[in-house]
């Protein structure tokens, strides 16, 4: 087990009164090395909060959360996160954004440059190296954000609804690209999404969370061969997975 979450609880203190919000009540989940796990669930179920905890950006209120058996105490460069809002540094060019992580770790300039060249190639950003984020489309910005996350050569890639702000076409092509990248790098991916079809398409295992306070309601393995293709969306197996998961999620919404 690479990441092991055991009886995680997360409570947020209200700002005005002392009312507490239980975001996650009791969550246990194990993630194997090189696995692609998608988490789906209704809005506010705590799935993004869980992701932030694995990133070391939030602390669980109770329970244990470990990576390779060691407790997660803070952010680590081997756990990179990609957000829905891209969150690029607007004063840095595409290249500068991608090199941010290695530069912070004092990697030599030449090595940073070589690494970013490879990622620019991999993410199809060639010709945009010197653009600033505001000059790019949403899809391109998210490519930069993914490249920036990969620049630290993470063991775990955490993605918080990364394609949520993209149009349907861009979204589909990004899913295909993400699969290709994952097949090449074989890092562990924890992927939060609203889209059931996206979860089925990408993941080895889909985890469904209940509405707040979040617990894990169901886990199913997606036994579809790789690489997955667009055509698979219409196969019976794919449809069955989708229908099954939709049933569970809808129970939670109503």
């Amino acid at each position: 087990m690479l990441i092991d979450a055991c009886n995680i609880r997360k409570v947020f203190n209200g700002r005005k009164d002392k009312q507490e919000t239980v975001a996650i009540s009791d969550l246990s989940l194990g993630i194997e090395r090189n696995e692609f796990v998608a988490i789906v669930g209704p809005s506010g179920c705590g799935k993004s909060t869980f992701l932030l905890m694995v990133a070391g950006l939030e602390k669980p209120s109770a329970g244990t959360l470990t990576i390779e058996g060691l407790p997660i105490k803070g952010p680590g460069v081997h756990r990179s996160i990609v957000f829905q809002e891209y969150l690029l540094f607007p004063w840095r060019t595409v290249e500068g954004n991608i090199e941010f992580g290695p530069r912070m770790r004092k990697v030599s300039k030449d090595d940073c440059r070589a690494g970013s060249r490879d990622l620019i190639e991999l993410m199809g950003l060639k010709g945009f190296e010197d653009c600033y984020p505001h000059e790019l489309s949403g899809g391109m910005r998210q490519r930069v954000a993914i490249a920036r996350a990969l620049a630290n050569k993470p063991e775990v890639l955490l993605m918080d609804e990364p394609f949520g702000a993209l149009d349907a076409l861009t979204r589909e092509s990004m899913q295909l690209e993400l699969q290709n990248i994952w097949l090449k790098t074989r890092c562990t991916v924890l992927f939060v999404t609203h889209s059931i079809s996206e979860a089925v398409f990408l993941a080895d295992r889909v985890v469904v969370m209940s509405k707040r306070p979040g617990i894990i309601k169901e886990e199913i393995l997606i036994d579809l061969e790789r690489p997955r293709t667009r055509e698979m969306h219409t196969t019976k197996e794919f449809r069955d997975y989708e229908a099954h998961l939709e049933g569970i999620v809808w129970e939670e919404v109503n």
């Binding site: 950006l57 952010p75 460069v77 990179s80 996160i81 809002e85 969150l87 941010f100 912070m104 920036r148």
Partner: peptide
Amino acid sequence: VDSKLIMAAQSLGAN
């Protein structure tokens, strides 16, 4: 400054 931008920088290794 957007607190999530700070989070992004922290997760990339900025001290």
